[in-house]
Amino acid sequence: MLKDRTNTLYIRTPEGIIFSMLLAGPVTRFLAWGIDLACISVASSIIGTALIIFSIVSLDLAQALTALSFFIISIGYGIAAEWYWRGQTIGKKLLKLRVMDVQGLRLHFSQIMIRNLLRFVDSLPIFYFVGGVACLMSSRSQRLGDIAANTIVVRNPKIAEPDLKQILAGKYNSLRDYPYLSARLRQKVTPQEASIALQALLRRDELEPQARIELFEQIAAHFRTIVEFPEEAVQGITDEQYIRNVVDVVFKSH
């Protein structure tokens, strides 16, 4: 089962389109739960303090309401938050996690209820041990509550935009003088190839001088085979500058 584990769930629509969702691992989920637990404690304390006012009428009533409010908050917090914020609690929001239907369909209230009620088993014996083990064993990182509710927890990390200005600013790009060839380059370069070129530029200062020359020589040689620019466009520029120009063309379309 473990070998089938993946951190990405792909959903293929009947139209043949595939979209992907990154699955959240047990550690991130545990941290989100920790934040939620803190929220529950704070909310219970605030409400408990506010309910002291009922002790004017009856101490018994005030204590009963405090116990009842703690019970409702501890069970209802996850359900209410995930329903109101469409699969997110405060902890999940902070860690950019979201509960989703396993087939990408709309999350139903009954699914939210089931996954939250099954926490009673997942949290056994302490600190979500059962849920954590189930998460590690599951190919979709599902705890028992997720399996019963047909849900998954995905993460939506914010893609950090590369600081292109830092590596490209103020440089003349001879490849841009050939817009049709530039367009073809954008078309032909795969995301993986583009990423290699970009990472090489971003980490160039970490390389030894000789390694840096060799690396850019290899990458430039590869990109030259993808689209061939006229001699005058590439004459006199280093391999590193060539890659800089390629990244400029690929990532900066406007």
Binding site: T13, E15, G16, I17, I18, F19, I159, E161, R186, Q187, V189, T190, P191, E193, A194, S195, V250, F251, S253
Partner: peptide, 14 residues
């Protein structure tokens, strides 16, 4: 969906 399919192999505009 069609736009996504077209952009799928494109390295630009993540």
């Amino acid at each position: 969906s069609a736009s996504l399919a077209k952009l799928m192999t494109y390295s630009a505009e993540p």
